[in-house]
């Protein structure tokens, strides 16, 4: 465990809390892609199956439970409690365009052809594209609420910090996980244009609106 890892997990947790606060306080999930939230719940479900089998640490177990809870509560709020405010016609990204390649790739490119390993690989590949429906929705509506941009900033920052964590671990313990690193790079690249808009607009107090 290193500082980048801790900052990454905190940033990830903060993103999820910001989203829950936004939906709960505004009693609305306008501008939020329900499909991305479903994909995140799927990522955590397929990745944290070892929650009950192998214990790593209190921190690891607690964070996995909290992440799973946040993901499912968010999906419930979007499709259950505040479904009347859900903007389904703008959340129109075809999930099969993501799920089919990700499932195919996780069967082709993995470390070992066992159910848990394939599910872990699936969750890594899926996480790298899970934000696309949300980014697609923002490009379609042309703007995003400021609190939603903070959510996206910390969500993008978390995997960027994980990249720093992997660089650190490579140099200190010769640890290198190719599938996680490659997927993490792809995932962070998807946020680049958003990061640019966030830093040049939102941090200057302007509203995020796409040209």
């Amino acid at each position: 465990m290193n500082v980048f890892r801790i900052l990454g997990d905190v940033s990830h947790l903060l993103a999820m809390v910001i989203l829950l606060v936004k939906i709960w306080r505004s009693k609305s999930c306008a501008g939020i892609s329900g499909k991305s939230q479903i994909l995140f719940a799927l990522v955590f479900t397929s990745r944290y199956l070892d929650l009950l089998t192998n214990f790593i640490s209190i921190y690891n177990t607690v964070m996995k439970v909290v992440f799973l809870l946040c993901a499912y509560v968010t999906v419930y709020l979007i499709y259950g409690k505040f479904r009347k405010t859900f903007d389904s016609e703008n959340d129109s990204f075809r999930l099969e365009f993501l799920l089919v390649p990700v499932i195919g790739l996780s069967f082709l490119e993995n470390y070992s052809f066992t159910p848990t390993e394939i599910l872990w690989t699936f969750s890594i590949y899926l996480e790298s594209v899970a934000i696309l429906p949300q980014l697609f929705m923002i490009s379609k509506t042309g703007e995003a609420e400021t609190i939603t941009t903070h959510y996206l900033f910390f969500l993008g920052l978390y995997r960027a910090l994980y990249l720093a964590n992997w660089i650190w671990r490579y140099h200190t313990e010769n640890f290198y996980d190719q599938i996680a690193v490659v997927s993490g790079v792809v995932q962070t690249i998807f946020y680049c244009d958003f990061f640019y808009l966030y830093i040049t607009k939102v941090l200057k107090g302007k509203k995020l609106s796409l040209p």
Binding site: M1, H12, I56, N60, M63, K64, N174, Y176, D177
Partner: peptide
């Protein structure tokens, strides 16, 4: 190296 991989990450 990947055998070094421990699923200690989230």
């Amino acid at each position: 190296q990947h055998l070094l991989r421990t699923k200690d990450e989230l």
